[in-house]
Nucleic acid binder design. Structure first.
Lengths: 191, 191
DNA sequence: TTGTAAAACTAATGGTATTAGTTTATATTA
DNA sequence: TAATATAAACTAATACCATTAGTTTTACAA
């Protein structure tokens, strides 16, 4: 423990991400992280600039993993199938990495370049999936906001146990996306 | 300050709700609340059983106010108009009381009777607004989950600044609800 | 082999919640 | 009205937490 633990920033972020999933974003503390890594908490400051920066790094990392999952999900599919696939991937990620997903939404772009970019990529992916519907410039904007609302709302309520019984949650998501696609014409504008 | 500040639980909750809106749910601390009330923090324990219970009381209070707003919004309207009205009221509440709204979603029912009831009432209101669509037993369940997802997702992303420019956010919500209603047939089941 | 930079450490500060025990104001009762 | 009991405030203390300052020590490079 004492003679050089061999830490670096990435190791900290990966360990902190595990803590987030185990104890919630709230439960990620420098004291706990240091203990997990066999080190005293002030030592962490050699690799990260305090809890605030750690949270930004966590959010960035989470967004990168989320992007990878969403991206893989829509490989080779398009249209409604792609909307369903990207939605399933989004909710599944939030379910499998609940704490990491949580960090993803705090203070979206706080002037941090890496975080801004990491957040823009999943957004761009959603835009690309909806572009086939020819909704117009502002219509596409409304549609993206709508799908993001659906995905985050469903994921958050599900993760917090807000849906009561866990029965047929997959079907609830499928039907919600079906309804969204069926009504997507309401988003269309003439620009 | 010293001779009897005349506090009671309700006063604490109202003051804490203000703090939540000013500083976020995170920023509601017993130390800050005590300072706001001109009292030392241990004194608060005469009226509330620690921070955990205060948060439960905050959530309960928030749900009651949310219920009142939603309830007032659908007086005398029905069908799609009611769905729009209840949605507008929900998002507006989350916007006007961001910190209080935040407390509303933490650990939905943790065995606390008052919180459970306070949470059930807005839910019942949504059910009543959707009952006119004759979606069937489980179809109604899917539809309620869907609308709740939309409302929370939209409110949360909006509050966190996740939608970039604040232009025509009202229109985004209107169109999203329009799409949901247009596609609500996808929820229908035969039971 | 020696010197340096970085990574660990200890110690200290100030913030947090919470518990225990004490004082005191208010309200009730004799 | 006076005495008493209850409850609401207090102080003091404990145990966490993040963070900063200053020190030791390791690993690597000259």
């Amino acid at each position: 423990m004492s003679p050089r633990a061999g830490l670096d920033t990435q190791t900290l972020v990966l360990a902190a991400a595990e803590l987030a999933d185990e104890h919630g974003m709230e439960g990620v503390t420098l004291a706990l992280l240091a203990a997990k890594l066999g080190v005293r908490s002030p030592s962490l400051y050699n690799h990260v600039n305090g809890l605030k920066e750690l949270r930004i790094l966590l959010a960035t990392h989470g967004l990168q993993l989320l992007y990878a999952d969403m991206s893989a999900a829509i490989k080779g599919v398009s249209g409604g199938e792609a909307v369903h696939a990207i939605s399933r991937a989004y909710v599944k990620f939030a379910q499998q990495r609940p704490g990491l997903y949580e960090t993803t939404l705090q203070a979206p772009e706080e002037g941090n370049a890496g975080l801004e970019e990491a957040g823009a990529k999943p957004l761009q992916l959603i835009i690309s999936v909806l572009s086939g519907y020819e909704l117009g410039k502002s219509g596409e904007l409304h549609a993206v906001r709508g799908l993001r609302s659906i995905l985050h709302g469903f994921a958050a309520l599900r993760n917090k146990g807000g849906f009561g019984m866990p029965l047929d949650l997959e079907e609830s998501l499928i039907r919600l996306i079906d309804a969204y696609i069926a009504g997507i014409g309401c988003m269309r504008t003439g620009d």
